[in-house]
Design a protein around this nucleic acid. Structure first.
Lengths: 224, 224
DNA sequence: CAACTTAGTGTTGGTTTAACACTAAGTTAT
DNA sequence: ATAACTTAGTGTTAAACCAACACTAAGTTG
């Protein structure tokens, strides 16, 4: 086993999870309000220490499920933050992950809240603890990149959706307007979605067809 | 400081560095032969434990420079490997990096060798220790991806080179033949290189112009 | 039933890409 | 010296892809 030499007995490993969803037409992240000094009143992404008996991945998964009671949430390792003074309590190396939750998983009832927990749009984040600003920034970049060259948008939408809703999501996340006809052409060319026989009802205008994703596994496709 | 609670005093953090170069028309990685049990005789990528007083990045950089005595070597964090039993001596979480060295930095004189150290083509790796097969695999994928959408090929070539050499490098790393005229058109369109007034001499055929990269900073460009 | 709102659909010109072959300028062998 | 050899260097064209563009369809609301 590990040598008892003090030099090697230093490290604490944590995982931090940036949980994304779309709310009110904007990309949001889930944050927790800190209850103790020195960051009391600031907000942080969910996370926790990695126990000796657990893999880093499983620790991330557990932290995610503590916040979001849902199966099959997309979770991906992002980057490891290893500066010495990033945590004032001591040397903590953090392996950051990001997760994507669809609208339907957004209900905060599904969240245990011993402290305050809330969604924040990424354009209006509160004061953040630790280096979590940096972590969230890196996560946004990665999410955006992944959405342009993979099909992981399926993680961000409910089971059924209209093509306009799908387009809207891409516009929100990529920060740019897309042409409706070209958009539908591309979606069609990649067999990204399949039509259901349902339509939206009760909206004050022409009903839209509802669609599902044809594949719910990550795949590389050159979308944009 | 860190609580003295035993549960948290477990982790050892290491860095592992996959060092790439091109040799004999193939992508190579630098490996070290293990001298001790339980991996005696197997090979591993360079690496080492992270000291409490150093950042993870600086530990990676130090490990790199222990092997390659060169300035400005490209170094990028790759992924963190956190399975419980990846190291038989105990719980070691490894932050893996990859580095790129040009041909001219390849001389193994520049390497201190208390044990054997050697380059291996990625198609003929020896038996590897730990999970280093997995790490090298991930590094290759990342390197290949980066070379297709950035200009980091400048890290893999000496200061001056011919266009044919440049094309050859891309063919080696991307595993595919490229059309000479289309290749040169693209390289030209992105101002990737600038001509010097030198030519290759002493080769048994028409001399080629020597070029340099116009920029030696990483940049995103849609090459292939 | 008129006004409103979102759904849904093709064409075209411009740009980019992929496929293709020959001449130029050296060295080496005779 | 010259012929044979080898790699360097250069444009054109057809096909695919991309970006820009406007109108009709089908519901709800007043």
């Amino acid at each position: 086993m590990i040598k008892k030499d003090n030099q090697y007995k230093f490290a604490v490993i944590a995982t931090d999870i940036v949980i994304f969803s779309v709310k009110d037409e904007e990309l949001n992240v889930l944050l927790i309000e800190m209850g103790k000094k020195p960051f009391k009143g600031l907000w942080a992404v969910p996370g926790g220490l990695v126990k000796p008996t657990k893999t880093v991945d499983s620790s991330a998964k557990r932290n995610l499920h503590n916040m979001i009671k849902m199966k099959d949430v997309y979770l991906e390792q992002l980057y490891t933050f290893g500066k010495i003074d990033r945590d004032p309590y001591g040397r903590v190396v953090s392996v950051a992950y990001f997760a994507i939750v669809p609208d339907s998983g957004i209900h905060l009832q599904t969240v245990k809240h011993d402290t305050s927990v809330d969604w924040f749009p990424i354009s209006r984040l509160p004061k953040l603890a630790y280096d979590h600003g940096e972590i969230i920034h890196a996560a946004c970049e990665r999410l955006r990149a992944k959405l342009t060259y993979t099909n992981i948008m399926y993680c961000l939408l409910p089971e059924e959706f209209t093509l306009s809703e799908l387009q809207k999501r891409y516009e929100i996340v990529l920060y740019k307007k897309l042409d409706k006809r070209n958009f539908r052409k591309k979606i069609g060319a990649f067999n990204l979605v399949k039509k259901t026989d349902k339509k939206t009802l009760g909206k004050p205008h022409r009903p839209a067809n509802l669609f599902q994703f044809s594949k719910k596994r990550p795949e590389i496709i050159p979308l944009f």
